[in-house]
């Protein structure tokens, strides 16, 4: 079926084109609202600026298709093949992209607000500047497919309030991304780059951030309970009132971090670099600080009760009013 035939049939009221072979079809700017294209082969199709709101594309093959600027609001793209597809600047508001395969797909500056991406495979996809507010990218704790965003480019992406529980974001580029209030519990952010990212009030409990880069990241009041921060680079990050209880932060770098009133109870900070960090009123109760570098850190009013500071370097540190491991309060 060619474009003219399809458009003719559609204008005559036919709506169901499911299972059709539509490879390479050119439907740029076509108005196809509500059409049923489920299980269609649309490999290499051109649908630039096409109106496809509420369209049914479930199980369709859209690999290498060009859907740049297409209106796909509330469309059903569940289980589609979007590998290497172009969705640059497309509108996917509340679209269903669950179990979609979008390896190397291009979602640059696309709108994916409230989209359902559960179980999607978007590894190495380009999601730069994409708006994913309140999108659902969650993965079940056990069984089911985990959202795959490994090595995805999410620079400057807006993920505020998105649900990324259990998502695999290893090696992802999240520089300057907005993750304010995002749910990142149990997510894998190992080796990810989160420099300059906004993570205020984000929930990173049990997340794996080992060897991730979080330079200048904003983590005010972030929840990082039991988070793995092994060799994580948090230079110049802001962690005021962040909760790092029981965090595994051995060899992590907190150089010049702003960590006023941060909670580090029972955290493993052995060999961590906390040099010049602002740790005023931080709580290190029972924390493990063996061989930590705390040179020139401001620990005034900090609580180090029962903390293990064996071999820690406190040269030049300000301990005014700090409670030491033995309960002694420094003058």
């Amino acid at each position: 079926m060619d474009a003219a035939e399809l458009l003719q049939s559609y204008s005559e009221g036919k709506n169901d084109f499911s299972g059709e072979d539509l490879r390479g079809i050119r439907l740029n700017q076509a108005d196809l609202i509500n059409i049923n294209l489920s299980r269609c082969d649309l490999h290499g199709a051109e649908l630039v600026f096409a109106y496809l709101s509420r369209v049914n594309l479930q199980g369709a093959k859209l690999n290498n298709a060009n859907l740049s600027g297409a209106y796909l609001a509330q469309a059903n793209l569940a289980g589609t093949d979007l590998n290497t597809a172009q969705l640059h600047g497309s509108v996917l508001y509340r679209a269903n992209l669950s179990r979609t395969n979008g390896i190397f797909a291009n979602f640059l500056d696309a709108s994916l607000v409230e989209a359902d991406l559960r179980g999607a495979n978007l590894s190495s996809a380009n999601l730069r500047g994409a708006c994913l507010r309140q999108a659902n990218l969650s993965s079940p704790r056990k069984g089911g497919d985990r959202v795959n965003l490994r090595r995805a480019d999410l620079q400057g992406a807006d993920l505020q309030g998105a649900d990324l529980q259990g998502a695999d974001l290893a090696w992802a580029d999240l520089r300057r991304a907005n993750l304010k209030g995002a749910k990142l519990l149990h997510s894998n952010l190992a080796n990810a780059n989160l420099s300059n990212a906004i993570l205020h009030e984000a929930n990173l409990n049990d997340a794996d951030l080992s060897e991730a880069i979080l330079n200048r990241a904003q983590l005010h009041q972030a929840q990082m309970v039991r988070a793995v921060l092994m060799e994580t680079d948090l230079t110049d990050a802001r962690l005021m009132q962040a909760n790092l209880t029981e965090a595994k932060a051995s060899k992590a770098v907190f150089l010049r971090c702003q960590m006023h009133e941060a909670k580090l109870t029972r955290a493993d900070l052995s060999l961590a670099v906390l040099r010049q960090a602002q740790l005023v009123q931080a709580v290190f109760h029972e924390a493990y600080l063996t061989k930590a570098d705390l040179r020139d850190a401001d620990l005034s009013q900090a609580n180090l009760l029962k903390a293990d500071i064996g071999g820690a370097n406190l040269t030049g540190a300000n301990l005014t009013g700090a409670t030491m491991p033995d309960g002694r309060v420094m003058n």
């Binding site: 600026f49 740049s68 600027g69 209106y71 640059h88 600047g89 497309s90 509108v91 508001y93 500056d109 696309a110 709108s111 607000v113 500047g129 708006c131 507010r133 807006d158 505020q160 300057r176 907005n178 304010k180 300059n196 906004i198």
Partner: peptide, 22 residues
Amino acid sequence: PPQEWFDLRLELVNRTNPLRIK
């Protein structure tokens, strides 16, 4: 501030086509 850029972009993409804006 970065947050305001995000809010601005959100408002734009919610109301019109991101590719056409670009």
